[in-house]
């Protein structure tokens, strides 16, 4: 991690994931949203539950793959809310996004440099991994790196508007939860059915 970001984190100048998801949902209208398992999905549910959210209850790492499958088979805009450790777990997905480049896919990685849902073990981005460089090397056209909360909404709006290829937005955040979270009170069948009903 670069020292400037470390200093900001130490000062508490950096948003948490909760604020990042709030900013994302300010921009979202009718986009499909696929969200990573664990705390991210629970926070999204708390901030803005809607039928066009697909909450993952398992298969960590596959959120952007589900998003890619949706983007390749619909004309709808698809937003993925993923985490840095989940992205690292399925790093090959970026090669497949770069191969297909659907312009309706915006992949957001909220990078808190930790495996938050499992006890805040440091992740690879806390060390030397730069996911933005992986994305560029895989041929993803529009790669953004954000450290300020105020830049999230305009950057997401730009990425949704852009039609040249897929977008990857890395948002650097602090670790930790904003508030206690509840388990999502929906089973997999309900999540699936109401999501699919939006698409057929």
């Amino acid at each position: 991690m670069d020292s400037e970001l470390r200093q900001k984190l130490d000062r508490g100048d950096v948003m948490k994931r909760y604020q990042a998801i709030q900013e994302i949902m300010k921009v979202v209208t009718d986009e499909l949203v696929v969200c990573n398992i664990g705390h991210p999905s629970q926070e999204l549910f708390q901030i803005s539950d809607r039928p066009r959210n697909f909450y993952m209850l398992g298969s960590m790492g596959l959120a952007p793959s589900i998003g890619l499958g949706l983007a390749m088979s619909t004309k709808e805009n698809v937003i993925v809310i993923n985490g840095d450790a989940a992205a690292t777990m399925n790093l090959g997905y970026m090669a497949t996004v770069g191969y297909n480049r659907p312009p309706n896919l915006v992949d957001i990685i909220i990078d808190n440099q930790a495996n938050g849902s499992t006890g805040f073990q440091p992740s690879f981005t806390a060390n030397r991994l730069k996911l933005q460089d992986v994305g560029r090397a895989c041929g993803i056209e529009n790669v953004y790196l954000i450290e300020q909360q105020t830049k999230i909404a305009p950057t997401l709006a730009e990425a949704l508007h852009d039609q040249t290829g897929s977008s990857l937005i890395i948002v650097k955040t602090d670790v930790g939860l904003e508030a206690p979270l509840d388990v999502i009170p929906m089973g997999p069948g309900q999540i699936r059915d109401r999501f699919m009903a939006e698409l057929t």
């Binding site: 793959s65 997905y93 191969y99 698409l199």
Partner: peptide, 24 residues
């Protein structure tokens, strides 16, 4: 049809799940 190569089977299953959700 729609087609893509994938890097690994597990990733492919994620993509297919997304495709199914949109009616494929």
């Amino acid at each position: 049809i729609s087609y893509t190569p994938v890097s690994r089977e597990e990733e492919g299953i994620g993509i297919l799940a997304g495709a199914y959700l949109s009616g494929k």
